[in-house]
């Protein structure tokens, strides 16, 4: 145990926290929760599927008018919508696979998909 002599007490702490960080990173990054693409639906039909890698604005027509969907830094939100209660707009940014924003009266929705589908409150 010649080499261990050089490890001071605090170094063990560093090693331990480093190992914890590695395990945490592995568990959180390899669990398939990262979203890769957004599926935009209008009137129940798929309007477009877009990758999250490029920032862009997408206008989606619905029965009430245009909904504006914003993709920025791998996150998606509905920026504006003609629906009266604005639930989907106030939902804010979506970033994890399985998250979904619905604008009901305008029949527009955005769903994030990752490498596999996670359980959510709608399917289990």
């Amino acid at each position: 145990m010649h080499a261990l002599r050089h490890i001071r007490p605090g170094d063990w702490l560093t090693l331990l926290s480093g190992s914890v960080a590695v395990v945490w990173l592995t568990l959180s990054l390899w669990s398939g929760e990262l979203a890769d693409k957004a599926v935009i639906r209008s009137g129940g039909k798929i309007f477009r599927e877009v990758a999250l890698s490029r920032d862009q604005k997408i206008e989606v027509p619905g029965p009430l008018g245009m909904s504006l969907i914003l993709i920025q830094h791998r996150k998606v939100r509905i920026a504006s919508d003609p629906s009266p209660r604005q639930y989907c707009v106030r939902q804010g940014w979506l970033e994890h696979a399985g998250e979904i924003a619905l604008c009901l009266p305008n029949q527009v929705s955005v769903e994030l998909l990752g490498s596999h589908k996670r359980y959510d409150s709608l399917n289990y």
């Binding site: 050089h6 490890i7 001071r8 007490p9 605090g10 170094d11 702490l13 560093t14 090693l15 480093g18």
Partner: peptide, 9 residues
């Protein structure tokens, strides 16, 4: 408490 091993990590 902290030596080169910590610095290195």
């Amino acid at each position: 408490w902290f030596g080169p091993v910590s610095h290195s990590i």
